[in-house]
Design a protein around this nucleic acid. Sequence first.
DNA 1: CCCTGATTCGC
DNA 2: GCGAATCAGG
Length: 236
Amino acid sequence: MSWTDERIEKLTKMWEGGSTASQIAEELGGVSRNAVIGKAHRLGLKARPSPVKANDKTADRAEAAPAPAKAAKPAPEPAAPRAAPAAPAPRAAAPTAPTPAAPAPRAAAPAAAVPAGDAPAAAPQPRIVSVGPGGFLRQGPGDQQAPIPPAPPRRLVPAKPSPEIADKTSLLDLNDRICRWPMGHPGEADFHFCGEKVNPGFPYCVEHCGRAFQAQLPRGHRRPPPPLPFGGPRVR
DNA sequence: CCCTGATTCGC
DNA sequence: GCGAATCAGG
């Protein structure tokens, strides 16, 4: 697969929307998670909370002697790696949380680059109450402007499996007082459980206890095994 | 182990 | 430019 404009667009959209690289890769199809990340970086749209990049400890005091015991590898010159990434904003450590780029007062275009080095004026920033999942900003009820990155498009799942089993005993309905004898095949839409009142002391109702527990007959008098509750192993 | 994103580097 | 391999934190 190649990176067509459409695919790039989708990647960009999902990436900025907060989808994980895996989700994006799955959605696009034909590409791996790594491919998505690599492409995203090449496109210049990086910058999302990375689980591994949270490092930012101020150097600490009372910590001198212990040997670093690190860098078992090449450890080349710290400077001059590869293509010098135009480090845009080496701004001093901001005391506040690293919230997403403050919405520009004018052009609301979510530009990837934030070269604005020094903006002394405190722009009419919306009052940020909290940061929701995906990094979008919650605002106070009085604030007008809608949150610009709207809720990230997460994958949706149906609230209910299907109306067919709505009145049937599902896995979640099981307790130790109702018969858990399976009806149908697991994985199928109408799979459910017996749901009858249990035979006290047993996990099944009286009827299914009769199926589950059978007297051991003397050798030579065994009957062929009863049909398995699931109808036997299924072949896919 | 699983997940995540970041980085490297041969192609 | 691409992406597998690798790294490293959660």
